[in-house]
Each structure stands twice: as C-alpha cells, then as structure tokens.
C-alpha cells in the first residue's frame, strides 16, 4: 500500500514538442525539436539569431504549421487544429511580443482588455477598472490607462504588453525576447515582473531569448537551440557546468567554438 502512494504519477506536460520540423523552401529551420515543459515550470530557450527560436514559438501558437512532428498542449495534439478548436487553445495562451505589438489605434486600457473583452469575460463598462488593476500589477500608474501606446516610453510599452499578456489569466505565457531594446536596469525590472506575474498566476512560462541574465532569472530550465535542434537542456542553475561546448561558447560569448558564425 505504501509503495502505491510513494509511486509518482506521471505528469502530463503542459507543452510537448516531439520531433518538430519546419522548413521555408530549402531553408530547414527546425530539424527535429523535442521540448517538454511541465505545468508551472518556466523554460527558457536560448540560441543565436536565426536558430529557429521564434519559429518554435510560432509553431506552438499556431501561426505556423510544422511539416513533421507533433505539438501537444495538456496532452491534446494541437499541431494541425484550426478554427474554433484553435481559438479555444489560444485562450490558454498569453504572449509578450518582442516589440510589445500594442495596437496603435487603441488606448492602453483597450489594449490590455482586448482579449478579455473579446472572450466576453468582462463588460466594456468594467474594462477601464480591470485595466488599471492590471497596470498596477506591472508597476504602472492608473493615469496612463487613457494614453495611446505612442505616448509611452519603450519600458512602459513593454510593461503594458506584459499587462495585456496576463490580462486573461493565461495558463501558459510566452515571452519573445522580453528584454531586447531595454537598458539593463529596465531589463531587470521586466525580468522581475515576469517572474512575479508568472508565479502569481501559477502559469507555465516559455521564453525565448539570447540575453543570459534574463534566461538565468526567468528560467527554471534552460534549453539551447542550435541549427534547428535542441542541443542541451537542463536546470537553469547548472548552466555554467553544462559540459556542453555549444552552451559554453554561447553563455561566455566566445567567437571561437563549435557554433559557426557567418559574417
């Protein structure tokens, strides 16, 4: 009996990619990506430019369809689903885009509440208050709710984009290069916010970045993508002792090593 209780029940991964391939013409971007993220875990995918990080994310989000392999969310195969089925899965996702991707034509409060209004989770009357609450959770003052994105600084835009990403209380949050274009202090503020918001929601996080400070802070696990394949995956705390040549070259920023750089 006690053996029965001590047996660990297998956890269904929140996100699972199995042998995913994606090519654009003759350019093979993903060549058998295998990734698994458990519920509540934060995985950071690192890798140089053009290694397929964004394509990996877009395949999970359904913006691109892989030619081969399967992508599962909560055990459900979502590789080729479309229409309403896709929309239903999309409701589980929140996404922080590299440039924020805030809608220029809408004020901040409408940007934040766009998804929740769309899904009918709140009324239009309640939306400004809801947006203010989310603004507070990312450390912004309520008075910016009625400004337009063009009137905000880069850091504020990123925070508003984060507020929008968490507005629908998503189960999975994707972060695409969250600190790109920010000064080191603001980058650290964003990293802290990402960690606190993700933990508060109990959400699963998947981040792609080449900023190692960000990767170390956000990630529970780190995976390294190179030439369309995961070449190393392990505990974020153990990355400095990975014993992998690719990882060591990347985290130390060395020009010489197994990673080929084209100038």
């Amino acid at each position: 009996m006690s053996a029965l209780f001590s047996k660990k029940t297998p956890v269904t991964p929140k996100i699972e990619m199995d042998n995913v391939h994606k090519a654009f013409g003759s350019n093979k971007v993903l060549q058998g990506v295998n990734v698994s993220v458990n519920p509540g875990e934060s995985l950071v995918i690192i890798g140089g430019s053009g290694t397929g990080k964004s394509v990996t994310l877009k395949c999970i989000l359904g913006m691109m369809e892989p030619e081969q392999g399967t992508i599962k969310v909560d055990g459900q195969d979502i590789t080729h689903i479309r229409g309403k089925e896709r929309d239903k899965v999309a409701e589980k996702f929140g996404m922080l885009f590299q440039g924020g991707a805030l809608f220029d034509s809408l004020p901040v409060w409408q940007n934040i509440c766009f998804g929740v209004l769309e899904r009918g989770l709140i009324t239009r009357k309640d939306a400004p208050d809801y947006a203010v609450e989310k603004l507070r959770s990312v450390g912004l003052k309520p008075d910016i709710a009625y400004l337009f994105p063009a009137e905000l600084s880069g850091g504020m835009q990123k925070r508003v984009a984060l507020a929008r990403a968490i507005a629908g209380d998503p189960e999975i949050i994707f972060f695409d290069e969250p600190t790109t274009g920010l000064d080191p202090i603001m980058a650290d503020v964003i990293n802290d916010l990402i960690v606190s918001c993700t933990k508060e929601l109990g959400a699963t996080g998947l981040t792609i970045t080449h900023d190692m400070a960000s990767a170390r802070k956000i990630g529970d696990k780190i995976a390294m993508l190179y030439q369309g394949k995961i070449v190393w995956v392990g505990d974020a705390k153990k990355i400095d002792k990975s014993g992998n040549d690719y990882v060591e070259q990347f985290i130390n920023g060395r020009a010489k090593g197994p990673i080929e750089t084209y100038v």
Partner: peptide, 18 residues
C-alpha cells in the same frame, strides 16, 4: 502593413481574434 511588421496581426491571433 505596419501592423504586420510590428507583429500586431500576430498579437490579434494570440488574443483569440481572427
């Protein structure tokens, strides 16, 4: 076109909007 370039169209998709 600007919405495409600045990923606003992708953002619409992630917000469950066609």
């Amino acid at each position: 076109g600007t919405m495409r370039v600045t990923e606003q169209i992708d953002a619409l998709r992630t917000l469950a909007t066609n």
